[in-house]
Design a protein around this nucleic acid. Sequence first.
RNA 1: GCGAUCAUAGUUCAAUGGUAGAACACUGGGUUGUGGUCCCAGUUACGAGGGUUCGAUUCCCUCUGAUCGCCCCA
Length: 450
Amino acid sequence: MSSVKAKKQSYQLLRGMKDILPEEERYWRFLSERVVDFARRFGYSRIDTPVLEQASLYLRSSGPSSDVVTKEMYVFTDPGNERVALRPEGTPGVVRAYIEHGLLNQPQPVKFFYMGPMFRHDRPQAGRFRQHTQFGFEVIGDQSPILDAQLIMMGYRFYKDINLAIQIDVNSIGCSVCRPRYVKKLTQFLTDNKKSLGLDDQERLKKNPLRVLDSKDPNLEPVLQQAPQSVDFLCDECKDHFVLVLEYLDELDVTYNLNPRIVRGLDYYSKTTWEIIETARTGGQDSLGGGGRYDELLHTLGARAKTPAVGFACGVERTITRLRANDIAVPTLPKAGLYIAQLGKEAKKKALRLFTLLDSEGYHVAENLSKDGLKTQLESADRLGVKYALIIGQQEIVDNTVLIRDMENGNQETVDWAKIVPEIGKRLEKGVNSKRLERQQPPLLPVQPQ
RNA sequence: GCGAUCAUAGUUCAAUGGUAGAACACUGGGUUGUGGUCCCAGUUACGAGGGUUCGAUUCCCUCUGAUCGCCCCA
């Protein structure tokens, strides 16, 4: 061994990345359980697609005018010399899977949900990370406006249920038939008002005029008020569709906000678009989720038949941030009802056996078998908030008993080893968290025959 | 990608051109048999690199990261 001090190398998180420590786990568990529950109730099946895809998948789908793909995507050449990308969003992968596996041969529409990491190489900021998690719902293979409405309702209900005050902003941006007419008109209008546009907005006007509607420039506000609105340019089909979406939303008692400025940042949207926005605007990143119809994307990505689709996705980190900021309680993990404390070499062995016995009986048992010192162990039991400590020391080994200590009042009772399971059963009948769900498996170890 | 502010133990904060303190947390102890209070002790930090200086945690530069705003978006 060298005595030369090795230089201490310290490692740190990559920019925009985040560790999720146990302290935050309950929020993640809570949300993912909610998502799974929603999916089950509304008939969505889970789909998990890879984080890595051909880069061209996103270039073709999300579009050359979207920053998400052109500026923010993690693209690189893999060791096999293939251009690959870390997914910046979920929809293209799901669509790819649908086409590739011929899911058009299943009863339509096909309903998917997913939850997983997305990557965007953007400058991190409040509520914005380079790796973030989205859950999303997609319905592929049906053009009915009732699906748009149902998805909007799901997002609405999801946030209502977790007590976050949100509003839904809805718009329709038309289809490949009517949108060009609108874009032309809007471009004309914006060009006429060019002197009111800031530098950023002039750039947008060239690249993607629709996005100018999203501008936060207060000077532009009065101009945008006068701007032509996409809903006034919809073709008959898009108009009928949108009217029905709104009718269904009324029927579903979903309160929404008609917002002609919701245009979304991805190129594939058509007809309905919407965003889920926190009502208590914090100024920064207040969009919790968004979605829209993408009737033309499947075809763009190689589907043989025209296949309409619609979906939305929400940000998990942002949702958790808002839950915490609003002090919204989420369930904590169930606590153990029992704690095994041991003192001495033989007792340690027997404690191990007792743990296994009780665990296989379905009890949730805590321990610090690696510790010595009874004091330390009871301290730990106290911190864990267990109802009973089961103590095994030298005396208990000799007598073949276990000492049951009530942690609330300090009362202790010695119980024969053979009776320990029924004795605990008596005491914990009233306990809420102590008994786990019954399991089918046999005990891992045979009960000690004594 | 642009701009501003910032960077000291696990956490929240101090102090200082002569290498750093506290609180909480953690570990151990207060005669290997008793927790929720108390007492004692201990571990742990100047983000990285370079420059100025006799000497840098302190001043300067670069990098890295964080926060906030813009862009964009979840």
